[in-house]
Each structure stands twice: as structure tokens, then as C-alpha cells.
């Protein structure tokens, strides 16, 4: 690791101060726990002249979770979210996802805002400066080619690995932003712009968020549906710490023997978190072998994991699909 370059750190205590600071320093970066950002800075991936610490923003440290809706502030730490009794009770998928992020020390540091905006990752990107330079730099930094997909024609395939996004996507999540032009709310589905085969989005692994310069995340929200059973699962090379090979969030509802609602979302597969399109077609009947075959087809169509980590893309897609099937079966059995 290289020594840290010189930068200034600001410690604002109100959101208004942050907005003013962002205006004054357009190239600043927000820092929560710093567990990802400081590593990237030390690897020479980025060199922001100003960091804005979100640790003292008390107004963004609240969690409100009721049977109807969930609102989580951007500065809430992952440990607090994972251990919040109301989140565990009404939104187990989000509590489980938070508990599965990195290791315990990282969760004590890392924040919800940081995980929602987590930089996309790739084996050709998360490397030291000399490694990247000797390997011709990639699209996501200063290079002209994606080494994962040399024929990608300017599309970066770095993978989104945040664990909280899939859970919030299941609850039709929204994200509150504030910037120089005031506040706005964006559907989480539109907040992530990374290339994902089915939605024709314009972004890629490099431009993966619809966040404007000077904007910051205030809160993430979700709306519950009564009777929804939810769970999160994730496969990692090292289970106690590590970014996901793939992560999967499932929500479903069972009425008698009928699967009446099914929502599936993934992380670690595409340059964005993916809420599976077309799962409504699998509902309305019992859970059968055909349901799983159809789920398999949806995953094959919409998950496009590439070799952005040590494991090959086809393996990661199978892992993700298998996790989804197991979770669906488990939750369906639990709903009996």
C-alpha cells in the first residue's frame, strides 16, 4: 500500500454544511467508514483533494422500521442496522444483508450510505498502481480497453457488490439525495445505471450511479407489503470477510399452497444490483419444478457475471441462481 496522498478532511455537523462544502470543493468525496475509499486512495485509484467526513451528521443516524416502511439514514453504521430490533423483525432480509457485509470491524466502521454507493469492483481495477500501470490500465481508470471483455467497445464490466441494495430493491426502494439544486428522490431501480442486459440502461461499471456532482445520499427507504417473507444469502471465498461471489435477496408470499408474490434481487453479478424482471409470471400457482425452471431461465437471461474476480462468470451465475432457488424453497416452506 502506498502512503496516503495529501488531502484535507472536513468534519461537518449538519447536512447544510455538507452541501456548502460540496459546492466549495466540487472534487471532494464523502467518507463514512472509509473501509473501501481509503483503500482505493492508497492504491492510487483516486486522489480527492478534500474528504468530507459524515461521522458527525447526527440527523442521518436514524433508523425507522415499522410494519409498513423502512427509512435508514446514510450515516447509520452497518452494525447498528444489522442489530436493530425493528429491522430484524420486519425486514430480516436487510438485517441479514447488513450482518453479512465484510467482517465485524468493518461493520463497526462502514455506513449504509457507503454500502449503497459502494464502488464497483474488478480484478483489473482493485489493484496497486504499479500493477494497473504494467497491465495497461483498464477502462474504469485511464485505460482504453476493458480487460475482462476486450470487445466490449467502451463498456466497463466492473461488478457492483453492495449487499444492502438487493434488499431495498425488493421493497421498491427509494433514495433521498441532496445537492446544490436541493433535494430529490430517485427510485433505487433508476439510481443504479450500470449496464444490465434487460433494462437498456446507459451506464456501465464505471458510471453506475445516477448521482450528480455535489450530491450526497441522505436516506434510503422501502415500502413493505403485508405477509411478505424475506431472506438474504451470500457466497464468499472467505465466509467471514470478503466481497460476495454473489448475493441474493428473496421476498415471497404464500397463500395456502399458492405462491402469490415473488421478488428476487442479486448483487455481485452485474455492474448494478439486479431486481429480477418477470417474476410475477411465476406466481399465482403452487411452487413446482416448472417454477424453478422458469426462475433459472430468468437468471440466465438477466445475470451477466463476467470474470471480474477470481471465480469465472458462469460459476458465479450458477451460484446466484442456486441461492435464489434455495431461498425460494426455504421461505415457501416457512410460509406453510
Amino acid at each position: 500500500m502506498d502512503a496516503l496522498p495529501e488531502f484535507q478532511v472536513l468534519h461537518p455537523t449538519t447536512v447544510d454544511e455538507v452541501v456548502a462544502a460540496r459546492k466549495e470543493h466540487p472534487h471532494s468525496r464523502m467518507i463514512g467508514g472509509g473501509t473501501d475509499l481509503l483503500v482505493n486512495i492508497r492504491r492510487g485509484i483516486e486522489a480527492p483533494p478534500v474528504l468530507i467526513d459524515t461521522g458527525d451528521l447526527q440527523e442521518l443516524k436514524t433508523v425507522e422500521a415499522t410494519a409498513d416502511s423502512i427509512t435508514v439514514g446514510a450515516s447509520v453504521r452497518l452494525t447498528e442496522l444489522a442489530q436493530h430490533a425493528d429491522v430484524q423483525a420486519h425486514y430480516p432480509v436487510i438485517a441479514e444483508a447488513a450482518e453479512s457485509i465484510a467482517g465485524p470491524t468493518h461493520r463497526n466502521m462502514g455506513t449504509v450510505g457507503g454500502n449503497i454507493c459502494l464502488d464497483t469492483r474488478c480484478i483489473f481495477y482493485n489493484q496497486s498502481e504499479w500493477w494497473r500501470t504494467t497491465n495497461d490500465d483498464c477502462l474504469k481508470t485511464t485505460g482504453s480497453m476493458c480487460h475482462v471483455a476486450p470487445k466490449s467497445d467502451g463498456v466497463c464490466f466492473a461488478t457492483f457488490s453492495g449487499d444492502l441494495a438487493p434488499g431495498f430493491l425488493l421493497f421498491d426502494g427509494e433514495i433521498d439525495l441532496i445537492g446544490p439544486d436541493g433535494r430529490r428522490t430517485v427510485a433505487l431501480q433508476d439510481f443504479y445505471t450500470g449496464y444490465a442486459r434487460q433494462d437498456g440502461s446507459t451506464g456501465d461499471g464505471k458510471n453506475y450511479m445516477a448521482i450528480q456532482p455535489g450530491e450526497m445520499v441522505l436516506r434510503v427507504r422501502g415500502k413493505n407489503t403485508p405477509g411478505l417473507l424475506t431472506a438474504y444469502d451470500k457466497v464468499r471465498i472467505r465466509r467471514s470477510i470478503e466481497y460476495p461471489v454473489a448475493g441474493c435477496a428473496v421476498a415471497l408470499k404464500r397463500d395456502g399452497d399458492t405462491l402469490s408474490d415473488l421478488r428476487v434481487a442479486f448483487t455481485g453479478t452485474n455492474p448494478r444490483p439486479v431486481r429480477l424482471d418477470g417474476t410475477e409470471a411465476l406466481t399465482g400457482g403452487p411452487l413446482t419444478e416448472e417454477t424453478f425452471t422458469a426462475l433459472d431461465d430468468l437468471c440466465k437471461d438477466q445475470l451477466m457475471s463476467m470474470k471480474t474476480t477470481f471465480t469465472p462468470g458462469h460459476y458465479r451465475r450458477r451460484v446466484a441462481t442456486q441461492m435464489a432457488k434455495r431461498l425460494v424453497q426455504r421461505l415457501f416452506d416457512e410460509g406453510a
Binding site: V9, H11, G34, T35, L38, D53, T105, N108, M109
Partner: peptide, 18 residues
């Protein structure tokens, strides 16, 4: 690892100002 307010944290990824 050091304790900050009684919680284990990584001092290699913590700025003194934090």
C-alpha cells in the same frame, strides 16, 4: 485492530480526525 468507544475498529483505515 484497536477499540474506539469500546468497539473493535481497524486503525489502518481510520483517519486520526475521525
Amino acid at each position: 485492530t484497536v477499540l474506539v468507544n469500546g468497539e473493535p475498529r481497524l486503525s489502518c483505515l481510520t483517519l486520526v480526525g475521525q
